[in-house]
């Protein structure tokens, strides 16, 4: 009798474990479903009706503040191999010193997501491409690693992967021997979030970055671009960049 109750007890325990596992799995799946439900369709995520852009107020960008750079490196696991000449940098801080007045100010430099990107023009295989929503990316399956895009980029915004990589992020696959650059965190933007650098700039930095849809008249970036002065870097090249700067 006692033996059978022990058996029943062990069955109960197994059942309880099973139930817990089931509930946990369903909850996990539920979260995933919510995320999936909130995500835009492939058409919505990448529409010609949207032009993602970034406005950077350099007055609010502190010399020595590196929040955006650290966030990007963590988000995409851009590891420091102790070789600054070959280590990848998708976003970097530039300190500009005026040659006449010695005034110093700082700004982040990253892929400018141009409307007419020279990197896309020169890429022999079409691996460098521009999405309908203006984000310039590298197709890591068709990049042959010729580095012509790096020669052609006026902003030095691209990095070549010089070594074997480990611990890659599932949302940001990378590969030795191909070129890469800022993706505007497409994995975030396509699910309604803002890029990691912008988030970090607001949380830890001076709040210098405003991300949004440049062609939506209701968006903050669009409103500010209309009402406040801003500029493109190397505007003489007429690339119509997706990243704009203020107070440079």
């Amino acid at each position: 009798m006692s033996g059978s109750s022990e058996n029943l007890g062990s069955v109960d325990l197994k059942r309880r474990k099973f139930m817990v596992t089931m509930v946990a799995s369903m909850a996990g799946a539920g979260f995933n479903l919510v995320e999936l439900a909130m995500a835009k369709t492939s058409l919505e995520a990448e529409s010609k009706l949207v032009r993602w852009g970034l406005l950077i107020d350099t007055e609010k960008c502190g010399v020595g503040c590196n929040a955006c750079v650290s966030a990007c490196n963590t988000e995409h696991n851009l590891e420091d191999h102790g070789r600054p000449e070959t280590d990848a940098q998708w976003i970097r801080k530039l300190d500009l010193v005026d040659e006449q007045t010695s005034h110093v100010h700082s700004l982040p430099m990253l892929c400018q997501h141009c409307e007419h990107p020279p990197c896309v023009d020169v890429c022999p295989t079409g691996a460098s491409f521009r999405r309908d929503d203006g984000i310039v990316l590298v197709d890591k399956h068709t990049c042959i690693g010729c580095r012509y895009c790096m020669i052609a980029c006026p902003y030095k915004a691209r990095s070549f992967i010089h070594e074997n990589l480990t611990n890659q992020r599932s949302w940001s696959p990378r590969g030795k021997g191909v070129v890469e650059s800022c993706t505007f965190c497409t994995h975030r933007v396509d699910t309604g979030r803002i890029p990691a650098c912008v988030e970090a700039c607001h949380a830890e930095g001076g709040g210098a970055m405003t991300f949004g849809d440049m062609v939506n008249p209701e968006s903050e970036i669009s409103h500010r671009l209309k009402s406040e002065p801003s500029r493109q870097i190397r505007e003489d090249l007429k690339l119509n960049t997706g990243v704009r700067y203020q107070n440079v």
Binding site: V122, C143, C146, V178
Partner: peptide
């Protein structure tokens, strides 16, 4: 960077590229 992808260079063309 990826010489093993020579076949990609032969089969994918961007005709805007001088390369």
């Amino acid at each position: 960077g990826r010489p093993d992808r020579l076949i990609v260079a032969i089969t994918h063309y961007n005709f805007k590229s001088i390369f």
